[in-house]
Design a protein around this nucleic acid. Structure first.
Lengths: 230, 230
DNA sequence: AAGTGGTCTAGACCACCTT
DNA sequence: AGGTGGTCTAGACCACTTA
């Protein structure tokens, strides 16, 4: 009973305590429950998730590898602080990798994938009208997942995934404006059109600009909130 | 005495045992003393570096984050196995990031940096004539370090550094042919010329081709060695 | 069904910060 | 000097593998 409660094991465990903790802590960081810059005291976290020091440390080490946690030897761990420079940096990398990833999708997409993309974007459109800003972003994630998930280059995907996770933490805190959300939808439809036409170069160019716009908007939002005294 | 021997601490320690182990193990992997695919048994490694289980595990977790070690929960750790697919994948990413990194260097280089680049390449030229193949690669690393090290984008640099490390492990095992080394030198001189002329687009185009050539050659060498029964 | 080796617990140790 | 909290040791535990 205790064991099941602690490890979440139901009967077929190939999961260890530290992988479980890693996933829980990552979710708490990505969703903003452990905010940017928060100190991660080992005992505190161990109590929070009903565990102990070593598995917590291992989880944090893995998360450091993913870039969401920072360790200072003998000084402890923190949630990585995301500032404007960092956002600019990862958007410049995204402006390289996302066109690259998209090109392969344009060449190898199936009709079913195209349909899924249209459906996802239709849901996004509706979300902007009907849901609150904090929920818009998950539609964005879905849209890009459809484009990239099947790519053969797992190293590039790992980089993209890391960026997506880190951006999620910020997107929660600084949701896009309504006008930007509408622009995102237009950009997505433009991408869909080029995917439909199998125009690889045009699709790549649009998504590159799309990423740059996203970066600019997010940084503006963050700086505005900071100056307002957030 | 024992403490100093164990931790390498001389009097001003801001280093922990696991960071020391991480650096030692990484060096052993990168230099090929712990070969691709090797099983990393915790107790064995602990004895090898005169330590114990927990610091070894932490070191290995960090190295997993860097991509040179792979963990399977409850199954242990291995030196990441580098195959042809993996090499193709990271070269495709490098073909994106290196032109990006080089562009900034072309715009912001100093005269002193240009001189350093010429000196480094001159040493490389000489090395191909005078040193054994296994030593050529370090000149390559120096050349690219000069171009990239000052870049503001630390996230892009981290990606590049990770790739450089992983490639070093393979470069040790499959040194380039003499003819390819000579071609590398020509490509480097072409890059230098464009850096001198501050022709950003041309420099980017050359380095992209340079990376693609390097990837092709390395994969060919690896496959040839594998078929020969490596 | 025993062995191997990865994982975790409790508690000691010790680096760093504050007073 | 004392306190906080990160790091490490010894040993128990337990998942997975081989026979």
């Amino acid at each position: 009973m205790d064991l099941i409660a602690k490890t979440g094991r139901t009967g077929a465990p190939a999961q260890t305590n530290y992988t479980r903790l890693r996933d829980l802590i990552r979710a708490d960081i990505v969703e903003g429950r452990l905010p940017s810059g928060a100190r991660l005291k080992i005992d505190e976290i161990a109590r929070r998730y009903d565990s102990s020091a070593i598995p917590v440390r291992e989880a944090l080490q893995q998360l450091q590898g993913e870039g969401v946690v920072v360790f200072l030897p003998n000084r402890g761990a923190w949630v990585r602080r995301v500032d404007a420079d960092f956002l600019r940096n990862i958007h410049e990398v995204r402006a390289l990798t996302e066109p690259y990833l998209l090109r392969w999708f344009v060449r190898h997409r199936t009709e079913a994938q195209l349909d899924a993309l249209v459906a996802a974007q239709t849901a996004y459109d509706r979300s902007v009208d009907e849901e609150e800003p904090a929920r818009w972003h998950s539609h964005n994630v879905v849209f890009h997942s459809i484009c990239y998930d099947g790519h053969y280059n797992h190293e590039a995907l790992a980089i993209a995934k890391r960026h997506t996770e880190l951006l999620h933490t910020v997107a929660q805190k600084f949701p896009v404006s309504r006008s930007r959300a509408l622009q995102v939808c237009r950009e997505h439809w433009a991408i869909i059109e080029m995917v439909r036409m199998q125009n690889e170069d045009a699709a790549a160019a649009i998504v590159e600009e799309h990423v740059r716009n996203a970066g600019r908007h997010l940084i503006e939002r963050m700086l505005a909130a900071d100056h307002a005294g957030g």
